[in-house]
Design a protein around this nucleic acid. Sequence first.
DNA 1: TGCCAGGTTTACGTGAACGTAAAGGTAAAC
DNA 2: GTTTACCTTTACGTTCACGTAAACCTGGCA
Lengths: 147, 147
Amino acid sequence: MKDNHSDTSTFADSTLNSDVTYSIGELSKDLDVTPRSIRFYEEQGLLAPKRVGQSRVYSKKDRVRLKLVLRGKRLGFSLSETKTLFNLYDSHTNSKIQLQAMLEMTEQKRAILNQQLEDIRMLMTELDDVESRCRDELDQINKGKSE
Amino acid sequence: MKDNHSDTSTFADSTLNSDVTYSIGELSKDLDVTPRSIRFYEEQGLLAPKRVGQSRVYSKKDRVRLKLVLRGKRLGFSLSETKTLFNLYDSHTNSKIQLQAMLEMTEQKRAILNQQLEDIRMLMTELDDVESRCRDELDQINKGKSE
DNA sequence: TGCCAGGTTTACGTGAACGTAAAGGTAAAC
DNA sequence: GTTTACCTTTACGTTCACGTAAACCTGGCA
């Protein structure tokens, strides 16, 4: 299975290639995640790539999805949480209940994110402090050494 | 085992009580974490409360430590990472190597935090978007209902 | 005196998110 | 034609961060 967008095709359409696809290996390298994980995300219902033969073929949208999953992880979202968000987002059967569930979810997430912002802000200043003290001590050491 | 700072002592020293202590149950309630977790953190070398009899007694410093552990968790730090930071921070045997290890660690953490900031920023605006669209649709629904 | 609310240790169980073989299919390359 | 580089499924193993149960101790109080 070779990449079908390997720049070696023609030089005809460099701008309007709107049907780019990726193999699992490519996505793996691009986004720095193991194939095992990607398949696991699919198993959990977070991805649904097309198949060609028995191989998975990922579209640009699939790629975006995967990136969203990863970002979610970086922010401490569980896979099932991310899935719920996807489902709410995808469902265009926008019932009133669904919309309100969505709003509740976003509010809750927003609160957590604000907490994280505060945490980061505090930790950043502490890191600043630690760093400057480290540098001071290193200066002391080097100063003593040069004498 | 009763609390030794239960405000029922005397009304003498309300300002300069510098040796406040906490039971595990108090810390548990105050910081919203189970006793099991607190003991687990100790088992992992993140806390080292005094003992009175066989009961754990936590000082103000212990409490701060615990809060730091929890903040670390909120930011996606593993317990062993937090422990490493503690160890580096605690060791006043500031060898050049240790200081540099510390600086490297802070730099690395800082990068991750910046990534998180960016992630949060993006997700926030997306939440804004989703929310406003939700509200629009809800308005549509309610509008249609009133006719 | 008896009991209860807290604390303790020991130890096995659990859920999430994968890691890691094992065993095999397939297509291009040599 | 066979090696190589990917891909596949199935399934058991693993790490982290606890949960949970059992069995016990211990000070205060009704």
